[in-house]
Design a protein around this nucleic acid. Structure first.
Length: 491
RNA sequence: GGCCCCAUCGUCUAGCGGUUAGGACAUCGGCCUCUCACGCCGGUAACGCGGGUUCGAUUCCCGCUGGGGUCACCA
């Protein structure tokens, strides 16, 4: 039994509950996807539950459109959630905007217990104080002066808007043991009386996060290191509310190649951008998994292997830089290996890209597609490239590149092409080996015949081994294309 | 600036006191070859600096430097 599997005061082993809690203020980017992945992996490995919660407490930045985009990305990645939007669960609602009553109730309880207080200072007053301080000392850091810290109900300005502030203990410190970073301790003196709820009744992150993680019985919170500092405040809140905190696991951050915080400015960072580029979900997941986590020297993992091998203890602690080349290579590895992407899955993944190029499903028989895949797997780094590589197998007639034609389909090649057509018309067996052998039997050299043959059959100078191509095309289409090639060559 | 975190090839990383410091990507040679790829073989390339501890530090401790995060009525 692992520590993480133990939760609750009875010490009885319970399946862990993990969560991913994005704020719907844009699409899902790869950093967020990695956070979701690690939590998902641990839930799968431990037989726990993976909860999806939408942190839409910032009205200005949240949108339903973003919620849809995030759900779409998670589904594409195959990171299914056991509880959350569209699937429900016992701990709902899973949108924070629908849980405001609970936050208000908890905030009032904290006030009653003397752990929080109402602060009637207006934004204007605060801004003025901030400005005054800056005027005196531009480098000074403004902290809330505590105007309402020691006041009580008798001082409340009924009818006026107010925020709830946490009464941070003057002494002591917040301490927790992170699964990745170990013991982290922050003195309370470094903390000011932070706001719990805004005057419009919406909670702030640190408050709603604690309330929901508790109410949703989350046993381990895995998130980015940018939240490491927030954890101290949250630990203080758990103490004030008399709750046992969950375990925490912070992940080192994924930075841009230049070492800056990753953002839209750095090429593609959205999960669906990579889907559009023709990567598979596992290609993306594999790269993300190996970022800040390792398992000996193993680089490539299937979904099952990832679940089997994942462990918070094997996560690193230092931030890393995103590397497009490595990402591309990992994604390629997944396309190349039938062990990682079966022919069946590959066919299903590549069809939309073929369709994008104007090849309808009727033009792409499943049997031919499956037969063609082994010939292009090691030649296509993405599904976009795969669709290009597969094109001539299905397009009738195939597109003939001008440079290829002018080099290998000239009048001088016409007799050879005509001869090749005859040679293969009489071929008794139609397998790659037999087709290659037939050439020598008829006194023709592979070296001399290959390129004209290739261009006549595919319209290109670079393709899989030409006899493999012929085997996939079949006798009828091969002979037809040879005939057409001979005609083109003759002019 | 306060608080917190981090530090091995260009990049992702292995290493958990004694290793010729390993792997992967990238890069540079070569081999294979009907083209293009794949694959294979080989090369270049790293422990930030200074103190300790120790018979011995990449590894443990301290300082420095460097990088990052966070200090909102954002998350």
């Amino acid at each position: 039994m692992t520590r993480a599997a133990t939760h609750g005061n009875a010490g009885c082993p319970m399946p862990p509950r993990l969560r991913f809690a994005p704020s719907p203020s844009g699409y899902l980017h790869i950093g967020g996807a990695r956070t979701a992945l690690f939590n998902w992996l641990w839930a799968k490995k431990q037989g726990g539950r993976f909860v999806l919660r939408i942190e839409d407490t910032d009205q200005d930045r949240s949108s339903l459109e973003s919620v849809r985009a995030i759900l779409e990305s998670l589904r594409w990645l195959g990171l299914d959630w056991d509880e959350g939007p569209e699937v429900g669960g016992d701990c709902g609602p899973y949108f924070q905007s629908e849980r405001r009553g609970r936050y208000r109730q908890l905030a009032d309880e904290l006030v009653e217990a003397g752990k929080a207080y109402r602060c009637y200072a207006t934004k204007e007053e605060l801004d003025a104080a901030r400005a005054a301080l800056k005027a005196q000392d531009p480098k000074a850091q403004f902290v809330y002066p505590g105007w309402w810290r020691d006041k009580g109900p008798a001082d409340w300005l009924e009818g006026r808007p107010f925020v709830y502030r946490f009464r941070t203990p003057a002494e002591g410190s917040a301490r927790f043991e992170d699964e990745v970073f170990g013991v982290v301790e922050t003195p309370n003196s470094a903390q000011q009386d932070f706001v719990l709820m805004r005057s419009d009744g919406f909670p702030l992150y640190n408050f709603s996060c604690v309330a929901d993680d508790h109410d949703m019985r989350i046993s381990l919170v895995g998130r980015g290191r940018d939240h490491l500092g927030n954890t101290a405040q949250q630990v203080l809140l758990y103490e004030a509310l008399g709750w046992e905190p969950p375990r925490f696991a912070h992940l080192p951050m994924m930075l841009s190649p230049k070492g800056e915080k990753l953002s839209k400015r750095h090429a593609a960072v959205g999960v669906m951008d990579y889907a559009a580029r023709g990567m598979t979900p596992m290609g993306v997941l594999n790269y993300l998994a190996r970022f800040g986590w390792s398992h000996g020297d193993q680089e490539i993992f299937s979904r099952g292997e990832l679940i089997e091998a994942f462990d918070w203890k094997s996560c690193g602690r230092s931030d890393g830089k995103f590397d497009e080349k490595k990402f591309s290579d990992v994604a390629f590895e997944h396309l190349k290996e039938p062990r990682l992407t079966s022919d069946e899955d590959y066919a299903a993944w590549v069809r939309p890209f073929l369709a994008e190029n104007g090849l309808t499903d009727e033009q792409v028989p499943e049997g031919t597609l499956r037969a063609a895949l082994p010939t292009i797997r090691e030649r296509a780094r993405t599904l976009v490239e795969a669709a290009v590589a597969l094109d001539y197998y299905f397009r009738e007639p195939p597109v003939v590149e001008e440079k290829a034609r002018s080099k290998f389909l000239t009048p001088a090649h016409a007799p050879l092409l005509a001869q090749l057509r005859q040679v293969y018309e009489g071929a008794p067996r139609w397998t790659a080996e037999a087709l290659e052998a037939r050439l020598a039997e008829q006194g023709l050299e592979v070296k001399l015949a290959a390129q004209p043959l290739r261009v006549a059959l595919t319209g290109r100078t670079a393709t899989p081994p030409i006899f493999d191509v012929m085997a996939v095309l079949g006798r009828e289409r091969t002979l037809a294309r040879l005939g057409r090639g001979a005609e083109l060559a003759a002019g």
